[in-house]
Simulated scan of single mutants.
Amino acid sequence: MVTTRFAYICRPFAQGLLDKTRALNELDFNKHQRARLRESISVDVRKLCDMLIPDARHPQVSVAAAEQAAAIGVDLGQETWHSQTRFDPKRAVFHYEHVNLVSQIVNALTYADSVGAIVQTVSDGLRLAWITKEEDARLTALGYRHKRPDPGAAYAEAGVVLLPPTPDPGHDRSDGVVSRAATG
């Protein structure tokens, strides 16, 4: 279920994403134009992620990243790629990662037929995680940087163990039911 906060933040992007995916499906663009439109959709998805994390969705954290973050007093569940240089000045320790690749979300969006379906698709596909640079190197060495049909299997093969996800803000943490405040 999508929380009201998540949907509210998605709203400025959802209509544009719907229009762009419809254009991609329906209009006769040349190869260059199609590539630029897909690129624009990818940028929109990335920027939407920047807005959603951590206010409407918490990033996941690998066990190894959590241990390293605890040693320096950082709660990665509240951090973003934009805040990383405060605790990891050269981005040398931690890697902010799309568990489900942006390209996978973009592909799934092409089947959405309404703004609500766009919001649901983004909600279903959006999984960001903090992992260590070493874990990222293992994923890359196994060929999972740009193609990851089964993210869980890729992470398992690379030995990356994610802590259980924290419920989205607006969910009751004890049972996963959306709180009354979140439903407005």
Results as ranks from 00 to 15, higher is better:
P12K: 05
P12C: 03
P12L: 00
F13K: 08
F13G: 06
A14F: 04
A14G: 02
A14P: 04
A14T: 00
G16T: 14
L18M: 06
L18D: 06
L18G: 04
L18A: 01
L18Q: 01
D19N: 13
D19T: 11
K20G: 13
T21N: 03
R22D: 11
R22A: 14
A23W: 09
A23H: 09
A23L: 09
L24R: 07
L24S: 08
N25V: 10
N25M: 09
E26H: 03
L27T: 14
D28M: 13
F29P: 09
F29D: 10
H32Q: 14
H32D: 14
H32A: 15
Q33G: 10
Q33H: 08
Q33M: 12
A35M: 12
R36W: 12
L37S: 06
E39F: 13
E39M: 12
E39W: 12
I41E: 00
I41H: 00
I41K: 04
S42N: 14
S42K: 12
S42V: 06
S42C: 11
S42Y: 11
V43E: 15
D44G: 09
D44P: 09
V45H: 04
R46C: 10
K47C: 15
C49Y: 14
D50K: 10
D50E: 12
D50S: 13
M51F: 12
L52Y: 04
L52A: 02
L52F: 02
I53Y: 06
I53M: 05
P54L: 04
P54D: 03
P54M: 02
A56H: 03
R57S: 06
H58A: 14
S62M: 03
S62D: 01
S62Q: 02
V63R: 03
A64E: 10
A64S: 08
A65G: 04
A65Q: 05
A66N: 07
E67Y: 07
E67I: 09
A69L: 02
I72Y: 05
G73A: 01
V74P: 06
D75H: 06
L76G: 01
G77Y: 08
E79R: 03
W81P: 09
W81L: 14
W81T: 13
H82F: 12
S83C: 01
S83P: 03
Q84S: 00
Q84Y: 07
T85R: 15
T85C: 10
R86S: 13
R86G: 11
F87C: 03
F87E: 00
F87A: 07
D88F: 01
D88R: 01
D88Y: 02
P89I: 03
K90W: 00
K90G: 14
R91M: 10
R91K: 11
A92W: 00
A92C: 08
V93H: 01
V93R: 08
F94M: 03
H95L: 07
Y96S: 08
E97M: 05
H98E: 04
V99C: 07
V99R: 06
L101S: 00
V102H: 05
S103K: 11
Q104E: 13
I105G: 04
I105H: 05
V106I: 07
V106G: 05
V106Y: 05
N107E: 15
L109H: 01
L109T: 08
L109G: 06
D113E: 15
D113M: 11
D113T: 13
S114G: 02
A117S: 10
A117V: 08
